[in-house]
Structure formats: structure tokens, C-alpha cells
């Protein structure tokens, strides 16, 4: 399945360090490999690879994107139903829930640890009511 590291890999370890599912193995300065069984298709390895060494699950070369340009989840709290599916599915535990509406005791999700977000979009994909959009920080809602 899924993502694949080609021989272009230089062993810089950027992908290994960001992989949230411990799916990437390899020594420094040696080509890395992705364990199919563990890969969750988050695409983070491709986004950080500076050597175009990662193929996505269609076999295309994944493009490196500077971290400041990554999409982040934006929550529409009017639509959100507090079901915690997004906070659970987040592979890096970047999301948390807290009280956010006055006189409303239901908790709603927020991006508690932005630096941990890997822009996988799983939260938006799995939200049953489409209350999450992946957007760049300056795009607004």
C-alpha cells in the first residue's frame, strides 16, 4: 500500500522524525523505507522531503511544501456536534476539546498544538458533519 521512498533518499531523517505512526525506518545518511503495515497515508513524509524521494499512493512524486504553507483545520463551531471524532483521529494529538461557547457546556475542538499538526486532513475527512475545512492560516473561513 501507500507511500514509498525511492533511492533518491539521502537519509536526512526528516520523514522519519515527522512520521506519526512510526512507519519509517532507516539510519542517518542511509536510504529510508516505509513499512506498509504501519503507514497511514498521512503524506507528511512527502511534504517534508527536500529530495523528491517520496512517491504517494498513486505513484506520483510528493511535493515538498514549506511548513508555513501547510493547510490547518478550521472549525465551524456552529456545525460541530462535539463528537470527538476529529480529536481521536488526529494522528499527532494536535487537537483538543474545550468549552468555547458562552452558556454552552458542550466542548468543541481546537488546534491546541499547531506545531504538531502535519496537515494530513484526517480530521476534515472524518468529520461526519463537514464542520472542518483545511485552510492556510491567512485564507480565513
Amino acid at each position: 500500500m501507500s507511500f514509498f521512498i525511492t533511492k533518491e533518499c539521502t537519509g536526512c531523517m526528516a520523514c522519519l522524525l515527522i512520521c506519526p505512526s512510526q512507519a519509517i525506518k532507516g539510519e542517518k545518511k542511509e536510504p529510508h523505507t516505509i513499512q506498509d503495515e504501519l503507514c497511514i497515508d498521512c503524506g507528511a513524509c512527502g511534504r517534508v522531503c527536500a529530495f523528491q524521494a517520496v512517491l504517494d499512493n498513486f505513484g506520483d512524486i510528493a511535493s515538498r511544501i514549506p511548513k508555513k504553507d501547510w493547510d490547518r483545520p478550521v472549525f465551524n463551531l456552529d456545525t460541530c456536534i462535539s463528537c470527538n471524532i476529529c480529536t481521536d483521529t488526529c494522528p499527532t494529538n494536535a487537537l483538543e476539546s474545550k468549552l468555547q461557547k458562552p452558556k454552552n457546556l458542550h466542548t468543541y475542538p481546537w488546534l491546541a498544538r499547531e506545531k504538531d499538526c502535519i496537515a494530513c486532513g484526517f480530521c476534515a475527512l472524518e468529520c461526519p458533519v463537514d464542520a472542518i475545512e483545511m485552510k492556510k492560516e491567512n485564507e480565513g473561513i
Binding site: 456536534i81 463528537c83 470527538n84 481521536d88 468549552l99 457546556l105 466542548t107 461526519p128
Partner: peptide
């Protein structure tokens, strides 16, 4: 005495607290 509602995973209802 409830300070917040408690939702189990995938629950839109939140009967807990």
C-alpha cells in the same frame, strides 16, 4: 453541578457530564 458535558467518542448527544 455540571461544569461540562461529556461526550463519548462519536457521540453527538453528550448525556454524560
Amino acid at each position: 453541578k455540571e461544569t461540562q458535558k461529556y461526550h463519548c467518542y462519536s457521540c453527538p448527544l453528550g448525556c454524560g457530564g
